[in-house]
Nucleic acid binder design. Structure first.
Length: 788
DNA sequence: CCACTGGAATTAAGG
DNA sequence: GACCTTAATTCCAGT
């Protein structure tokens, strides 16, 4: 299996990326791809690789780090990036994978030589494969996670085997070097393609085609049942990915994304030597096709077929898929009858072929020489500001945006709550070179931010769209590249980004995927910009939007809290707090909850609400007194708005402050203090908002790692860094949500955290109960741990 | 004619 | 394994 998968996988993944045609050159560029259009190669290419490395990162990175890409520019670099070179051929890739780190590290800094175009090409084989595995029963497939979509994917691909959990995330090899985009002239992105450089990128953008199909779907299997099982929430979420924890250890968990399964799997994989891997790969690659078929569930296939057509039609853009590695590719033609062929044909031809022809152009156009360094993998956590620069979301997107399925037409671009569209601006940049703003759909749970496996950004075009954009795929993640022009003050209005929902069953089947899609319907828009520095390095900044609920239902029924007039209050309570959001009813209830690290509810108190003042978009509540009036340090709790048994908002964070008088200083032991939460206990969880930052993990010394600059939010870091102590599987992390909201529910910890990202902190309390996986609400076990 | 939408019927997943 | 509830997907139809 394994091998098979690999083969498949790898190829696919690799290939998955498709660039849009336009890109093509770029693509070609792949190798070269510079991010900036104009710009010379300075920019590094993005590398997902890094991610891949990431894992390593932690390890590696930390260690040495090379430069990472880090966010920090300066910094050094950490190892994150892969050298482009590494990326190059796919073989190389694989190998790299294995070795990854080293290479990476080493290279990193160097700009690599570009990957040869070939690189791109080669790859073709595809990475996707892993997904295919889907076919396999999920369960069975232990396959690694590699797949996960994200950036990792690459990694996966490559790493796959290797990837130890740790690695995984980071690893993503991808890094794409983006090239510039000749076409548009604007700078291109970075990245995307990187790794792959897959030739494929679809230019298209076509919406539908999009990723999904390819990538994800690829195989689309029908819903596999099984997978679910496996995943059911229980696992760790894949998300873990980054989590620091993961890193080091092998524990399954460790790798962030990886789910347990994966991990496990990985573990094994890891073991394989690179050579072996290579061999395997080769073998596989050759016939990758074989496998696919098998696993695919009937439905899936069917589905695939169905879609196929579209693809076929759409193909053009299809390319976009990018990454998606669509199953198609993976599957052998045989497997899928007509469509497949079609698809494949189409795709492949187009895309794949692209390389052939394309390449030519590509090269011409973007010769990018160097590969860019790699850019940080998409699941790396990056700071939003560093030195004089700050990437800021000037206008946040609406909290609800119904995503569309491939089977539907587009549901339009994400809008701002006040009308208009979200906007992002890079402050502090005074150069005349335009840059490329990358946008992808990220998770919104309390775990570290990473590409969302079930949603992809969807490029919107048309007369109503004023912002030009390109679509690229990085490791199974579609990335929209939008020009940031000095003449516009480095500000971009995001009116070209819609959200595509991938079928849960398709994604869950992917080999490496550990997250579950059910109830995992919240996302964040993640923006990145890579700023070339004088020293040749690239500073990468990232900022994520407020969470966006993408399901139809919730948008209509679930209460949603967008803002709260108070974030904290003395334990006495009594103060009024105004909640702003949606779907508030006269009889909406607001419940404050204190959760133990394990997720159990230690305390619940319904707050008084003023029905007269209740409006659909605002609710006034009286903050209830905390159960323990003697706390000596702030205690973090949560509250949610409830419109009925199963209609609860996400948990919101709230902090109770000690009454002035410090009364007793009892030991902390008393109750569980929330504080703890933040602290150790939760550790993983985390907490809350702020806390996250620094402290948490202790990380590492290596600043360079991503962080660089500023600070990175904890979470990330953690992720990046090494795992925290806890490491337990659970990890979870830190999650502090970047934004305010998210807290994570502690409870879930590991356990809980089901794979699904859902759970994550913010998550709402699930009505039914806790997350699926975990029982969140379990009984109050209570204190249990209290700190022990 | 097509991109959006809002709604809602169907179909899955979970209990 | 039937039945029920809720979530996910697919369809429809109006703008």
């Amino acid at each position: 299996f394994f091998w098979a998968e690999l083969s498949m996988t790898s190829p696919s993944s690799t290939f998955s990326f498709f660039l849009p045609e336009r890109y093509s050159y770029a693509t070609t560029g792949i190798s070269s791809a510079l991010p900036l259009p104009t710009a010379p190669p300075t920019l590094p290419a993005p590398c997902h690789d890094q991610q891949a490395s990431a894992a390593g990162i932690s390890a590696v990175g930390s260690a040495g780090h090379p430069a990472g890409y880090a966010g920090a520019v300066d910094g050094g670099p950490s190892g994150y990036f892969l050298p482009s070179g590494g990326i190059t051929s796919y073989l190389g890739l694989h190998h790299n994978n294995g070795q990854f780190f080293h290479d990476v590290a080493v290279e990193d800094v160097l700009p690599n030589p570009r990957r040869s175009p070939s690189t791109a090409t080669l790859s073709l084989p595809n990475l996707e494969a892993y997904r295919d595995p889907s076919c396999l029963s999920p369960a069975s497939s232990l396959s690694s996670r590699s797949c996960n979509s994200e950036a990792s994917s690459y990694e996966s691909s490559f790493s796959y085997p290797y990837a130890s959990p740790q690695t995984s995330p980071w690893q993503s090899p991808c890094v794409s070097p983006k090239t510039t985009d000749p076409e548009e002239g604007f700078p291109r992105g970075l990245g995307a393609c990187s790794l792959l450089g897959s030739p494929r990128h679809s230019p298209s953008t076509s919406p539908r085609t999009s990723v999904t199909e390819e990538s994800w779907l690829g195989a689309r299997t029908s819903r596999p049942s099984s997978p679910c099982n496996k995943r059911k929430y229980g696992l760790n979420g894949r998300q873990l990915s980054c989590s620091p924890h993961a890193s080091p250890t092998p524990s399954p968990h460790s790798s962030p994304r990886v789910s347990v399964t994966d991990d496990t799997w990985l573990g094994n994989t890891t073991q394989y030597t690179s050579s072996a891997i290579v061999a395997a790969i080769n073998a596989l690659s050759t016939d990758s096709s074989l496998d696919l078929g098998d696993g695919v569930p009937v439905k899936a296939r069917k589905t695939a077929l169905d879609h196929s057509p579209s693809l076929a039609l759409k193909v053009e853009p299809a390319a976009e898929d990018l990454g998606a590695t669509p199953p198609t590719s993976d599957f052998p033609p045989e497997e899928f009858p007509p469509f497949q062929h079609i698809r494949k044909g189409a795709f492949c031809d187009q895309y794949l072929s692209v390389p052939q022809h394309p390449y030519p152009w590509a090269r011409p156009r973007s010769p990018t020489p160097y590969a860019s360094p790699s850019l940080p993998a998409l699941d790396w956590q990056l700071p939003s500001h560093s030195g004089p620069y700050e990437l800021r979301i000037e206008v946040q997107p609406k909290s609800h945006h119904r995503a569309h399925y491939e089977t539907e037409g587009s549901r339009g671009a994400v809008k701002a709550s006040a009308g208009g569209h979200p906007s992002v601006q890079l402050h502090g940049y005074v150069e005349s070179e335009p840059l490329t703003l990358q946008l992808f759909i990220g998770t919104a749970d309390d775990r570290l931010l990473r590409p969302h496996a079930f949603y992809q950004v969807h490029r919107i075009t048309g007369k109503t769209v004023s912002t030009t954009s390109h679509e690229a795929v990085l490791s199974n993640t579609k990335v929209l590249e939008i020009p940031l022009l000095p003449e516009n003050n480095m500000r971009a209005i995001i009116d070209c980004a819609g959200i595509l929902k991938l079928r849960n069953s398709d994604i869950e089947l992917r080999k490496g995927e550990t997250d579950i899609g059910r109830k995992n319907t919240r996302v964040r828009l993640v923006f990145r910009v890579h700023i070339p520095q004088p020293n040749g390095r690239t500073l990468s900044l990232q900022v994520a939007s407020n969470p966006i609920e993408c399901s139809q239902r919730s948008a209509q029924e679930l209460p949603l809290v967008e803002k709260q007039s108070a974030a904290s209050c003395p334990v006495l309570g009594g103060k009024r707090m105004v909640l702003t959001g949606h779907n508030f009813l006269q009889d909406s209830k607001v419940v404050f909850v204190e959760k133990a690290p394990d997720g159990h509810h230690i305390w619940e108190m319904e707050a008084k609400t003023d029905g007269d003042l209740c409006k659909p978009n605002s609710l006034v509540v009286e903050i209830p007194p905390f159960r323990n009036q003697r706390i000596t340090s702030p205690v973090q709790v949560n509250f949610y708005v409830c419109n009925g048994k199963r209609k609860r908002s996400q948990y919101q964070h709230f902090t109770y402050l000690p009454a002035n008088a410090p009364v007793i200083k009892t030991e902390p032991s008393d109750d569980y203090e929330p504080a703890l939460t933040c602290g150790p206990v939760s550790q993983g969880l985390n907490p809350l908002t702020k806390p996250c930052y620094g402290p948490p993990l202790a990380l590492p010394p290596d600043p360079s790692s991503c962080l660089v600059a500023g600070f990175p939010p904890c979470p990330q870091r953690s992720a990046v860094m090494s795992p925290p102590p806890s490491a337990s599987p659970k990890l979870h992390d830190l999650s502090c949500a970047p934004y305010s909201k998210g807290m994570a529910g502690p409870g879930h910890l590991g356990l809980q955290r089901p794979a699904g990202g859902v759970l994550g902190g913010q998550e709402a309390p699930r009505p039914g109960g806790p997350h699926p996986g975990a029982p969140q609400p379990p009984p109050p076990a209570l204190l249990q741990p209290q700190v022990t």
